[in-house]
Design a protein around this nucleic acid. Structure first.
Length: 415
RNA sequence: GAUCCAGUAGCUCAGUUGGUAGAGCACAUCCCUUUUAAGGAUGGGGUCCUGAGUUCGAGCCUCAGCUGGAUCA
């Protein structure tokens, strides 16, 4: 009430530009936007500016290496250049920060460790939790930020609940671009200061706005690959730290008796107990840890009527298990398991605990269509039971649980 | 030792009544995609085991040889 009347008074007695000056000084919250050089973050910055925020652009450099990069040259120079052009166009301050040390430690090291242990990590999910909404946010707060914004296609909404204010992480309005999945590991604290200015927009609108505002990157191609690292050939990239080790490729027939014929949740979720004896040796690979379940390319064995897919890896014995055809029963699983310590509730107030279960819309990889299933909590952890079997359930990847369009929880797939 | 069958793209094979070859898989590239994957499109590839014959013309017919497999002694 008080501030409102002040504004009214100012409105009466001050010329317009002075009014703007004072109202900004008094009201405008400061937002530090992670500007990457791409359209999305550029338009995000513009939207914030338009909404009257005190906007600061901050470019983060997280990666210096080009080993294993597919597109020959490092795009860093281009990225900063575009980021700077956008900042200039929008008349916002522009800074650059180097977070490659924490990025290496908290994202890349995790990536190598996971692959080494035969799992398939999702570095971009970690990047958001550990870097953009942690290390980067800290830098932003050093610049007196009230909020940290990114160009993610997702939305945030704050509601009042019996447990206090809760921040909801909602899917981006553009169903084709929704990136809420990548934020499935952030928490309430991180959300409290987060802003997603383009979450309500469709991608074509974002481009249109960029063009209208004459942003230099309006028609720039979307970035792909691991955030900050780029499009890499994984085996090549991993060979920096992981050794090439020849091992056997074992084909498991589709009529294998390993197929689970049971309704028991534990058994449905259990990893398939592959052994060399359960199939036949059909070739050699260069390291089981370079492969991921569901993978087709790179097995390098032909002569089969249907393509071979990886259906299991055993890094201890260095054996790659493969099966023929998309319809191979062991390529899919009806259930999966998440350890208690790997369960993460974005909405703590909606947590369910041992003995409880609930239905969700679920996805186990980015851009996967939401699947129907339920989460069943038991003392040892959470079991996810899907209505229909899921292709390539990959340990190390994240399961994201949605209620309608809200991402309420996530967890690392154990198996 | 004899008989039979096979030898065609990297692999598994198809090739009609003889007219200079195809499919699946593999592989490559591109598209899609801020994870891993998947998916879509396009493409590169073949002294048709060797030699000699028949024929206007042979992957397809004849003979010999080589190599694999099976069977019989």
């Amino acid at each position: 009430m008080d501030s409102l009347s002040n504004v009214q008074i100012l409105l009466i007695i001050l010329p317009e530009d002075l009014f703007l000056y004072y109202s900004n000084r008094m009201k405008a919250k400061r937002v530090v936007v992670g500007i990457s050089g791409g359209v999305d973050s550029g338009v995000a910055a513009y939207m914030l500016k338009k909404q009257g925020y005190d906007v600061v652009g901050l470019f983060m450099r997280n990666w210096h290496d080009t080993t294993g990069l597919k597109s020959a040259s490092c795009t860093y120079e281009d990225d900063v250049m575009f980021a700077e052009m956008v900042a200039k166009k929008l008349s916002i301050p522009f800074y650059e920060v180097d977070l490659s040390e924490p990025y290496r430690r908290r994202v890349i090291d995790y990536l190598f460790k996971e692959y080494e242990s035969g799992r398939t990590p999702n570095p971009d999910v970690l990047c958001n939790r550990e870097i953009k909404f942690d290390a980067f946010a800290e830098e932003a707060f050093k610049l007196d930020a009230d909020f940290v914004a990114t160009g993610h296609y997702c939305r945030k909404e704050t509601i009042k609940t019996p447990h206090g204010d809760m921040h909801r992480l909602l899917a981006g309005k553009d169903p084709n671009k929704d990136q809420s999945y990548f934020l499935c590991q952030v928490n309430q604290k991180q959300l409290s200061t987060a802003l997603f200015p383009i979450g309500e927009l469709m991608k074509p609108q974002v481009r249109e706005i960029a063009r209208e505002q004459n942003l230099a990157n309006a028609d720039r191609k979307d970035s792909q690959g691991i955030c900050f690292v780029g499009k890499v050939d994984l085996p090549t990239f991993l060979q920096q730290q992981l050794q090439v080790k020849k091992g056997d490729i074992v084909e498991i027939p589709a009529n294998s008796k390993l197929v689970v014929d049971s309704d028991d949740l534990t058994r449905l979720a259990a990893p398939y107990p592959f052994t060399p004896e359960s199939g036949i040796m059909i070739g050699q690979h260069r390291g089981a840890h370079f492969f991921t379940v569901g993978q087709r390319k790179g097995i390098n064995i032909g002569g089969k009527p249907k393509p071979l897919f990886v259906i299991g890896t055993d890094v201890a014995k260095n054996i790659l298990y493969v099966g023929q055809g998309q319809d191979h029963p062991l390529l899919s699983k009806k259930a999966l398991f998440i350890r208690n310590e790997d369960m993460h509730w974005i909405r703590p107030d909606l947590t369910i605990s041992s003995g409880e279960e609930r239905e969700y819309k679920i996805r186990i990889r980015y851009r996967q269509e939401l699947q129907n299933g339920s989460l069943i909590m038991r003392p040892e952890g959470g079991y996810v039971l899907f209505d229909t079997p899921q292709r390539a359930v990959v340990s190390g990847q994240f399961t994201a649980f949605y209620l309608k369009d809200e991402l309420v929880a996530s967890g690392v797939i154990q198996h």
